[in-house]
Design a protein around this nucleic acid. Sequence first.
DNA 1: ACCTGAACACCGTTCAAGT
DNA 2: ACCTGAACACCGTTCAAGT
Lengths: 223, 223
Amino acid sequence: MATRGQRTNRRADALSKQRIVDTAVEILDTEGESALTFRVLAARLETGSGAIYWHVADKGELLAAAADDVIARVLAVPVGDAEPAAAIRAVALGIFDAIDARPWVGTQLGQAPGQLAVLRIYERIGGRLEGLGVPEKALFFAASALVNYILGVAGQNAANARLAVPGGDRSAFLAAVAARWTEQDPADYPFAHRVAAQLADHDDREQFLAGIDLVLAGITTLG
Amino acid sequence: MATRGQRTNRRADALSKQRIVDTAVEILDTEGESALTFRVLAARLETGSGAIYWHVADKGELLAAAADDVIARVLAVPVGDAEPAAAIRAVALGIFDAIDARPWVGTQLGQAPGQLAVLRIYERIGGRLEGLGVPEKALFFAASALVNYILGVAGQNAANARLAVPGGDRSAFLAAVAARWTEQDPADYPFAHRVAAQLADHDDREQFLAGIDLVLAGITTLG
DNA sequence: ACCTGAACACCGTTCAAGT
DNA sequence: ACCTGAACACCGTTCAAGT
């Protein structure tokens, strides 16, 4: 993200969890998930790889902290006093955009549930549900439907990003996926053939929002 | 001629992709995701680790094939001529149960979109949407809302299974998650505090189905 | 208390060599 | 064509030793 200037040979400050996480995010953002190893992280921090373990339990905690950092920042922007449905859409869209920009966050969210980041998302989404007329008893499962949908899209998008060629354009990628759908036997996969064109054409962000709206429409039904 | 003939345990049959995948599934099921390595797989198959690469491109393909095998089997059971909503619920529940029994399938589905298994799910779900009165133009995104929700739950459940202690009971695990929610500041996380009890009490399967019903209710809105 | 970096116990994958 | 298994190029993590 933020381009850093020339790096002196001396560490600016002592090692800390925050500095480690910041550097990890930087590597993740610029070089991708597979580039983050304790060796390159240590080199970038000008320390030994073992030093990192003084501040962070293991790689899982590091990844969780990195994802949480990003999500916390995204959710920090105030939604104002928009009406509940609009606020939920805005929050969801913010998460989508963050994941779209950083696929590694999607990977992380898709597979770490106890995580603080997921709790943050539940809080921001769930907090608006009452305003939507959701009865007290249904609050948790209504929130869970929205959150699981968001996390599902997050995981799929991250995987897509991992699959796509770094430079390649998106419509070519979608065309390739659509082609795999249509190369199946139409007798076994009639639906796949029927919607392949829609798959090839669709806009991810728009489709994501449409899904949110669908769940919201269902939730309104609960009132 | 060096008498090297003490191959007492002669293999029952030649190596094949199917036999490799079957053995991988066996290891995944009994020993878990982390136990599947090319070394133990080769040992179990009484061959060299390099031999596997003659039949399978890499570990990613192996995992994808294993997950696809399971999903194909799950989707093979006929739903009969139930009405569309009931059929979709049945299909979704079948997938949920399969993932609950084999968390590694959830991990795999949550992060491999181009996969045949995901296409199969789209087909089975999507094929019933028309009967629900979904207009042609909305078929793909309606299916995608359902599938992404399912895959989101799949990923979270798999991650939960990875986190939980193998022998530990489920209510203790949920209580621990709920405790992490309530240990946050109530001023920052009012929703978390409010629904922590629901989180601790809920039944995963029931909650999953409730989410499906919510999306279905939203989809009915499109008619 | 915090850091160093070699060492340990693994991985997935390749490939010359065999049949 | 198919299989073998040693070798390669990595990993995350530990830990005795330093400051």
